[in-house]
Design a protein around this nucleic acid. Structure first.
Length: 287
DNA sequence: TTGACACCTTGC
DNA sequence: CAAGGTGTCA
């Protein structure tokens, strides 16, 4: 199967791949979990190579997912999203190899923007083991849990410093990687509920971790971009209002009722569209 | 159930 | 001075 066109810059800067950087125009290089990749565009296609023995590019890009069918279902049930589907033809939810990196990475993302999240997650990545090509794997939960608050504060984590450390400890108390694996197998409702019990993880981070780290397609992370776009499209009476618990659930429930397990994919188009609308400097390669 | 505010740093 | 979630409290 040929690889579908992927809007690379959006995938990376759009909140999924915090440890990649553009090493040359259009060429992205970095580590995720304990795997290294270099990815770039050739004409309409995305080309990539793993840089180590653990590379699983097809898995990362979900080569097995019938993206065309997902897109067709979304357009069928949400024709109002057709312009976004057209603008982001290769967009997809990536499947990252490490649940721990997603868990910790999105803790860093709380009330934060990519310009600061990426250096933060990268600095944690320096604590991992070498995996070749100058890259490092993401450190274990134990390693993160062993950090001192001051170390992270000095790396620019701000008030997230204690949250990241405490959340790593709480994850370990709940069973560590086995707990995360168990959540992935146990369905969206339970995963979301248990994640949101962790101090420092609210409804939005719980959904990010579910969608990007636990393969839960029903997860709909409602951040400021998705909220703004969802109000415009579906809840005009809420425009300008705060995202309360009830409104947060209403947005997710609407997506789940319309798109079922494609809800997370559908949300990604809304997110991307609003991000581009507000960040002209991203200069996305649109098709 | 909602709104208001503190928290921390970067960038416009 | 605005942006960006969570926790807490009125």
């Amino acid at each position: 199967m040929p690889e579908e066109e992927v809007n690379l810059r959006l995938c990376f800067l759009g909140g999924q791949m915090f440890r990649f950087q553009e090493e040359a125009p259009g060429v992205f290089f970095g580590a995720t979990g304990s795997e290294g990749y270099r990815l770039w565009r050739e004409g309409a296609w995305v080309v990539g190579e793993g840089t180590g023995p653990q590379a699983r590019l097809e898995r990362l890009l979900r080569a097995g997912v019938q993206v065309a069918e997902v897109r067709a279902r979304i357009e069928d049930r949400g024709p109002e999203l057709a312009p976004l589907l057209g603008a982001f033809q290769g967009l997809r939810i990536l499947r990252q190899p490490s649940r721990v990196e997603v868990f910790i990475g999105f803790l860093c993302s709380a009330n934060n923007n990519l310009h600061r999240i990426m250096p933060m997650v990268r600095s944690l990545g320096e604590l991992g083991a070498e995996i070749g090509d100058g890259l490092r794997g993401f450190p274990s939960l134990e390693r993160v849990a062993s950090l001192e608050e001051g170390e992270l504060r000095s790396r620019g984590f701000g008030y997230r410093a204690p949250r990241v450390i405490l959340a790593a400890r709480e994850a370990l108390e709940r069973g560590g990687t086995a707990w995360l694996d168990d959540l992935a197998a146990g369905g969206y409702d339970r995963a979301w509920r248990e994640l949101a019990e962790v101090k420092g993880i609210g409804r939005k981070l719980a959904d990010c971790i579910c969608l990007f780290g636990l393969d839960q397609g029903e997860a709909v992370p409602v951040d400021t971009h998705v909220w703004s776009a969802a109000c415009r499209l579906y809840f005009p009476e809420w425009e300008g209002k705060a995202v309360t618990e009830a409104r947060y659930q209403a947005v997710g429930d609407l997506f789940r009722s319309k798109f079922g397990s494609d809800a997370g994919w559908a949300h990604q188009f809304l997110f991307s569209g609003n991000l581009v609308r507000r960040r002209k400097d991203l200069a996305l390669p649109m098709s």
